[in-house]
Design a binder for these strands. Structure first.
Lengths: 338, 338
DNA sequence: AAAAAAAATGAAAACGATTACAAATTCTAT
DNA sequence: ATAGAATTTGTAATCGTTTTCATTTTTTTT
């Protein structure tokens, strides 16, 4: 079924059919009705490639994610929702492990002529910057989770500093003074703000952090275990609380503590960050900092649609405020419940 | 940059440029070299819509998932991997809650002229069957997780009966005789085979299942808790083991047991199904049945690519064998370790 | 060196829509 | 009834490729 056949069946020109399809109001009422009836009957749907060719539109956005796991699922669905409501398809690519591949996949998206790219980035290296700079010359992009200030690309972030600050405030309010930190990977500039908040909070209380109480992790569960291991083995006094830079590492830390016969939270409190879906179901249920994934996804999609519509965007940086979620893995110091 | 401009720069016709791009070997060596140099220099990439229009190919597959959460993440990435290696883009849609929307989104994919659809289905209703029947007249499809025997659509499944059988065998071998079952939703025909395996195994041992020891769930964590609650409240003797039809419900069940002061696995053993990523990190680490998501994704993608290539497919039903994973949540009856 | 065969190239017609612009039709006001 | 305006419709060019077929160029054979 092509527009030509519809035109023939309706006894009009293709131009008229096209007008009907596109809701042009200069078509007489009964002509329109007739054409619509035939479109209905034949189950015709315009060829989007032909249309795209002349309109120079693919009606597809590209979505680049580090991976498509549970952590991003609500974000992906929010994006999907906004896009399809605006008649955009969503084509995906994933970053996988190595960023060589990530950049290759990003280029692939660009070559597919997507009209815009929503890019959730785990980290931004100089090589990333270079390739992104090239791409945004041709294709609008919005970054999520990271920002590149020297490039003019809008970004959706959460306030990592504020979030970690809230976490630390809670730990301190619960009376903890010996607090260890399992840190994010150093090259994640955004997450590294959690580190800053940790140190600032400790300093503000006049508390010293022994070297062994600061361990790097890579956001994975095993790295949380290892970090905890080293904290305990380092020869420093055992902390009363541990702040992990994300929930996975908090889970790893708890795993390690329990294996060594320590109780959480009675012996050691553990604070997470992210509020992954499992956090509330873990035992003990994780006290953590919540990120609004739906908001991030929705805003990212709306931002790029807004850009397509008006060729510019109101805000180039949207920073969302994370929220402290108090559950069971952090306990007031010295309390003996549980 | 269009093919015309390249042609002009190279001093040849667009036909020749097109031949170079498509690796046609009837182009003289130096002509080819020259054209390629210019393509390189100008960073030209052919317009895929124009190409698609004449070749009648979009080079895009549609991927329909119930949702994009952790459970499907490896499958999605495997699909993505195979597709991009074969120069296909992947456009996504999700089923969300209501299947009205699911079907609408499926139709949307079809209208976007994807060349094939990989459809991971949570359940198949008559309405699904109807719409799928329509779609496969025009677009090849492969189903994952479910099959529709009366329609000629290839499917990738795991052997749910065998998987549940393995789980039951393990429970029985551990000496359990009072085994309760938290069942899948009734309309999931595939998962319901786990129910069959449960009853068959019990019957084979001459064991009776009191009514209260069989509770329906909906695969969610809370429904697992509720099911467990009803099993304990039903007035029947407390089971020594519980088999949950998926890991989420197993986690819910454990949650419930612990809240009521029962220890897992010392007082009650819990068997899951799926082996979600968190299963190994949960406390106690979940004994469960593993599904190979990577294999499912890879095979699904390869199947549809094979179909595109040869217009037919070797196998129309691929059934993968799940594997029992023994961890800590199931214990030999009467053992007192832990 | 000419004829025949093979190889390389180009001209032009698709593919299926949209959209200026022109042409035809209908309506309004005299 | 008719000029002029307003409304509808159609013609044909266009988007950027690929591909058939004809033509030109090169190579081989005699």
């Amino acid at each position: 079924m092509t527009i030509k056949e519809i035109a023939k069946l309706a006894g009009v020109s293709t131009a008229t059919v096209s007008r009907v399809i596109n809701g042009d109001l200069s078509v007489k009422k009964d002509t329109r009705a007739n054409v619509e009836k035939i479109i209905q009957k034949t189950n015709y749907w315009p060829n989007l490639m032909a249309r795209g060719l002349v309109k120079k539109k693919t009606n597809i956005f590209g979505l680049m994610m580090p991976r498509f796991d549970g952590w991003y699922s609500q974000r992906v669905e929010a994006i999907l929702d906004v896009c399809s409501r605006n008649k955009y398809g969503v084509m995906i690519a994933s970053g996988l492990a190595k960023y060589e591949e990530e950049m290759e996949n990003l280029n692939l998206l660009a070559k597919q002529r997507v009209e815009g790219i929503i890019y959730s980035a785990a980290r931004i290296t100089p090589r990333h910057r270079e390739i992104i700079a090239q791409i945004i010359e041709r294709i609008p992009m919005v970054l999520v989770d990271q920002a590149i200030d020297e490039l003019n690309v809008p970004a959706i972030l959460q306030d990592n500093y504020r979030g970690a600050q809230k976490a630390m405030r809670h730990l301190l309010e619960c009376g903890h003074r010996r607090i260890a930190f399992i840190a994010p990977p150093q090259d994640d500039i955004e997450a590294e703000k959690r580190t800053a908040a940790f140190y600032d909070a400790m300093r503000a209380e006049g508390l010293d952090v022994p070297e062994g109480h600061f361990q790097r992790g890579d956001f994975s569960i095993p790295s949380g275990s290892q970090g905890m291991e080293r904290i305990l083995e380092g020869g420093d006094p055992t902390p009363t609380a541990v702040f992990a830079a994300n929930d996975n590492m908090a889970i790893g830390a708890i795993d390690c503590l329990i294996r060594r016969g320590l109780r959480v939270p009675q012996d050691v409190s553990v604070m997470g960050f992210d509020d992954i879906a499992m956090a509330r179901h873990f035992l003990p249920a994780l006290t953590t900092v919540h990120q609004d994934q739906v908001a991030m996804g929705t805003q990212a999609a709306e931002l790029i649609i807004e850009y397509k519509k008006y060729k510019k965007v109101r805000l180039k940086k949207i920073i969302l405020e994370p929220e402290l979620i108090v559950r069971d893995s952090v306990q007031r110091l010295g309390e003996a419940r549980g």
